[in-house]
Amino acid sequence: MAKTFLQVRTDERDKEQASVILEELGTNLSSVVNMLLKQIIMTKSIPFEVKMPQAYTEQEKAEEVKVSMEMERLTLTEEDLELLNKYRKAADKDKFREEILAEYAEA
């Protein structure tokens, strides 16, 4: 069976990280790509689940912002989280931002 060359564009860091893991597993990227192609042919499908990520709830979004801020050693109060939710719902975000900045400038 004749072999052909397959070229794939990917993030360099992803390729390197995957290659290290595959080497530890006793295989390599080329072999895994060939396994993937064989599975696609055999199953006539993508051999793993492909789906849209689950949507965050409003609470999860707020918690993620809070955790991210805490990682930067910035704390958010409940008032701050409420303000973020109001901003998210604002029809004119630029106007809302200007009003908030003006309030902080006055304080």
Rank of each mutant, 00 (worst) to 15 (best):
Q39A: 12
E63T: 11
K89S: 10
N28V: 08
Y87G: 11
T43E: 09
V67T: 04
A90N: 03
E49V: 00
N34R: 15
E103K: 12
K95M: 08
E79Q: 09
V65R: 04
E98W: 00
M52E: 04
K86R: 07
K3Q: 07
M1W: 04
R73I: 06
I100W: 02
D14A: 11
E12C: 02
Q39N: 08
T57V: 09
A18F: 01
A18C: 02
L37T: 14
K3N: 09
K15S: 02
I100M: 08
E99V: 01
N85E: 06
E98T: 01
M71C: 10
A102I: 02
E58W: 02
M52S: 03
K15E: 01
M52Q: 04
D80Y: 05
E16P: 00
V32Y: 03
Y104M: 13
F5M: 08
T57R: 10
Q7P: 06
M52L: 06
T4D: 00
T27N: 05
K38I: 14
E99I: 00
F5V: 13
E78F: 06
D14V: 12
V33M: 13
Y87N: 06
S68E: 04
A55Q: 12
T77V: 09
L36D: 06
K86C: 02
L36P: 07
E49M: 01
Y87C: 11
K93A: 10
E82A: 09
L36H: 09
P53T: 06
A90V: 06
K44V: 02
S30Y: 05
T75C: 04
M69L: 14
P53L: 05
F48L: 03
E12D: 10
A18R: 02
T4F: 09
A105D: 11
D92N: 14
E82I: 01
E60V: 09
K89M: 10
S31A: 14
M42H: 09
L25W: 04
R9D: 15
R9A: 15
L76P: 11
R9H: 15
D92E: 12
S30E: 12
D92V: 07
T27C: 08
S45V: 00
Q54I: 10
L37F: 15
R13D: 12
E72R: 14
E103R: 13
A105I: 10
M1V: 14
V65Q: 04
I41S: 12
S31P: 07
K93H: 11
Y56G: 04
N85D: 01
G26M: 07
